[in-house]
Design a protein around this nucleic acid. Structure first.
Length: 452
RNA sequence: GGAGAGGUGGCUGAGUGGUCGAAAGCGGCUUCCUGCUAAGAAGUUGUACGGUCAAAAGCUGUACCGAGGGUUCGAAUCCCUCCCUCUCCGCCA
C-alpha cells in the first residue's frame, strides 16, 4: 500500500477565507471554481454535482438585484415624504407608485423564497471536499494503511467476544432484545462494571492529556444536526422524539461541536479540546444483516468522543494529535491496532480527511474500526456558524473542527475479551484497567453459579 | 402547568413611526502623552450580499434591532402569530 503525502494541487487552502455563513462550502468558491469543485466531489462515492446549484444561485442573485432596485426606489419615495420635498400634487402619485412597487416586490419575493429553499437544500446536500492528501478509491479497499501497532496475540481457536461474554456473564443478548428489540444488549454484572471502568479510564486519560471534559444533553434539536451534517440527508439513521422535534444523539460530536454554535470565540481560546462521554443511538438503517451477532453494532452504544476547535492553519496538525490521543487508549490497554487513511470514496459526508483506527479481533481474524478521526475543515463551522476573532482584531473567521472517537467503549470491551482470552475460557484484565475494577485481574466463569 | 417581565451591535444597555445601523458605557483597534509593567487624552470600531476598481482602500446600493406575517408612502418603534429567555408560584429526581 502506498502512502500518499499531502500534495498541493487544488489548494483547499483557498477555502480558508469564507465570506458567507450558512453554506457548507463557500458559495463564492463554488461559483468561481465550479469545475474544480466538481472534480473534487467526483472522487467521492455517490453523485454530487454543483451545476444545478450554480444555475439556481445565478437566478437567485438576479432576482436579488431586481428586488434591491425596487427597494431603492421605495426608499427614495419615502425620503421625499420625510424631507417634505414632495409636491402636494405628487403625493397621491407617489403613494400609488410605492404601492405598485410593493406589489412587484411581493411577486419577486415569492420566487426568491422558493429559490432560496432550493438553494439551501442543494447546498446542504453537497458534501465536503476531500483534501488533496486523501487517496482516490471507491470503498474501503482503497484505504491506505498508515501504521500498525502491537503484537497480534497467538491464540489457537480464538472464541468470539459474544461467546466469551455470554459465558462470563458479561452480555445478556436475549434479554436485551426482550426489553427493547434486536441490537440492544444488557450488560450484566462484570460487563456493566467493565463498561463503566472503560468510560472512566478513557475520560481520565484524555483529561490528563488536555481535553476538557463535558457531559452534554443527549437529546438535541434540529439545528445541531444540521450543524454537524447529519441532517438533512441522513435523518433515517436517527432516533427522533417527534413530539418535541428532538433527536437522540448518534454521537457526542453533535452536541459538543454545537457547544459554540453562533458564537464568536477569541483566537487566544483556541485550540479548544473537549472530551465527552455519551450514549449514542443509531437506527443502523443501512446495516441490515451486518454484524448481527455480538456487541459490535448496537442501536445504543457508549462512546467517549474527542472534539477540537482550532484555527484553520493548524487543523491538520491537530488531526495528527487527535489521532495519536485516540491511539493512546489502545496502547495503554495494549490492544493491537492499525491506522488507515480513508480514501475519498469511503469518507464520511462532512469530512475533509479521515483516519480510521482499527483494533484487532482475533476470532474474526481482522481489524475492525474502533475510532474515526476526522478533520472537517470549515465545513461544520459554516453550517454551525462557529467563528473566532483573529488576534490581530480582524473580521471573524470560520474556525476548523475535528473529532474522533476516543474510543467506542463497547467495541473496546469486545476487543479486550477477544485479545485477552485464555485457553481456559477466562479473560485477563488489561493492567491499565485494573485500578478501575478494584484491582481485579481476570474474569473467570463461575462454574457453580446458577444463571439468574 | 399557572402568573408576570423581556428578547437591540463582541458585551452591558438607551431608543418619541421618518433625523436610527441605531445613544451611552465596556471591550477592541490607532495615535498622542507620561520614564516605567498603570493611568490619561483624541479618534476609530457590526454583519452579509451586490456595484464601482486590475486589486486593495475608498465610495456606493440593499438587507439585518428573536422569527414570521400585517398596518403605513415609510416600522427597532404600532398590531397579530410563533419561538426563546428570565422572575415568582406549583410539581418533581
Amino acid at each position: 500500500m502506498a502512502f500518499h503525502p499531502p500534495s498541493n494541487a487544488l489548494s483547499i487552502k483557498t477555502f480558508e477565507h469564507p465570506k458567507s455563513s450558512k453554506t457548507m462550502l463557500d458559495l463564492k468558491l463554488i461559483r468561481e471554481n465550479a469545475a474544480e469543485v466538481e472534480k473534487a466531489l467526483a472522487r467521492r462515492n455517490g453523485q454530487f454535482s454543483v451545476a444545478e446549484l450554480v444555475k439556481v444561485d445565478q437566478r437567485f442573485r438576479d432576482l436579488q438585484t431586481q428586488w434591491e432596485l425596487l427597494n431603492q426606489r421605495t426608499n427614495e419615495i419615502s425620503e421625499l415624504f420625510k424631507t417634505g420635498k414632495a409636491d402636494k400634487s405628487q403625493i397621491e402619485q407617489l403613494r400609488a407608485e410605492s404601492k405598485e412597487l410593493k406589489g412587484k416586490r411581493e411577486e419577486i419575493e415569492k420566487e426568491k423564497v422558493a429559490l432560496e429553499e432550493e438553494l439551501d437544500s442543494l447546498r446542504l446536500g453537497i458534501p465536503n471536499l476531500p483534501h488533496d492528501s486523501v487517496p482516490d478509491g471507491k470503498d474501503e479497499t482503497g484505504n491506505v494503511e498508515i501504521k500498525t501497532w502491537g503484537k497480534i496475540p497467538a491464540i489457537s481457536n480464538p472464541k468470539h467476544h459474544w461467546e466469551l461474554g455470554t459465558e462470563l456473564d458479561v452480555f445478556d443478548f436475549e434479554r436485551g432484545v426482550k426489553i427493547a428489540e434486536s441490537r440492544f444488549t444488557v450488560l450484566m454484572e462484570m460487563g456493566a462494571k467493565m463498561e463503566r471502568a472503560l468510560m472512566n479510564f478513557m475520560l481520565d486519560l484524555h483529561s490528563k492529556r488536555g481535553y476538557r471534559e463535558v457531559f452534554p444533553p443527549i437529546l438535541v434539536n434540529r439545528d445541531c444536526l444540521i450543524g454537524t451534517g447529519q441532517l438533512p440527508k441522513f435523518g433515517e439513521d436517527l432516533y427522533k422524539c417527534a413530539e418535541d422535534d428532538l433527536f437522540l444523539v448518534p454521537t457526542a460530536e453533535v452536541p459538543v461541536t454545537n457547544l459554540y454554535r453562533d458564537e464568536i470565540l477569541e483566537e487566544e481560546q483556541l485550540t479548544i479540546n473537549h472530551c465527552a462521554y455519551t450514549p449514542n443511538f443509531r437506527r443502523e438503517a443501512g446495516a441490515a444483516g451486518k454484524d448481527t451477532r455480538g456487541y459490535i453494532r448496537q442501536h445504543q452504544f457508549n462512546k467517549v468522543e474527542l472534539v477540537k476547535f482550532c484555527v484553520p492553519e493548524k487543523s491538520f496538525d491537530e488531526l495528527e494529535a487527535l489521532t495519536l490521543d485516540a491511539e493512546a487508549i489502545l496502547e495503554a490497554l495494549e490492544l493491537p491496532y492499525r491506522r488507515a487513511l480513508l480514501c475519498a470514496g469511503d469518507m464520511g459526508f462532512t469530512s475533509q480527511k479521515t483516519f480510521d483506527i482499527e483494533v484487532w479481533f482475533p476470532a474474526q481474524d481482522k481489524y475492525r474500526e474502533i475510532s474515526s478521526c476526522s478533520n472537517f475543515g470549515d465545513y461544520q463551522a459554516r453550517r454551525a456558524n462557529l467563528r473566532y476573532r483573529p488576534a490581530d482584531g480582524g473580521k471573524p473567521r470560520f474556525l476548523h473542527t475535528l473529532n474522533g472517537s476516543g474510543l467506542a467503549i463497547g467495541r473496546t470491551l469486545a476487543a479486550i475479551l477477544e485479545n485477552y482470552q485464555q485457553t481456559d475460557g477466562s479473560v485477563k484484565i488489561p493492567k491499565a484497567l485494573q485500578p478501575y475494577l478494584g484491582g481485579l485481574t481476570e474474569l473467570r466463569p463461575k462454574k457453580d453459579s446458577v444463571k439468574v
